[in-house]
Amino acid sequence: MMDILDPTTEAATQTIAYSPRPTALDGKRVALIQNTKYNSDRLLAKIGDILKAEYGVAEWRMYHKHNASVPAHAEIIEEVKKSADVMVAGIGD
């Protein structure tokens, strides 16, 4: 018999609270996070318009990452937390 050690990350115990998903989009404010790739802004604007026209979303606002290869920066996260109920992140490739 032999023992071997686990090479993977064992997450330390912590609780992550997820925001509850809204059951409907009526009157919600939507943040669109675009990754700056070609046409991603157009794709997301189209999605925003559909959400308004067909799902009763109150408004949408678009946020631009610094570039496609980095996570959304802190200012975006802070602003979205204050001013949006729902977020759509999308890429254009």
Binding site: M1, M2, D3, I4, L5, D6, T8, E10
Partner: peptide, 24 residues
């Protein structure tokens, strides 16, 4: 102390297969 989780295998051959099975 090493804190990683430990797994038992019969021998080296089984340990090698275990690494495949666990996706390591």
């Amino acid at each position: 102390t090493l804190t990683s989780k430990r797994f038992s295998a019969q021998d080296e051959a089984e340990a090698i297969e275990m690494a495949f099975d666990k996706g390591w």
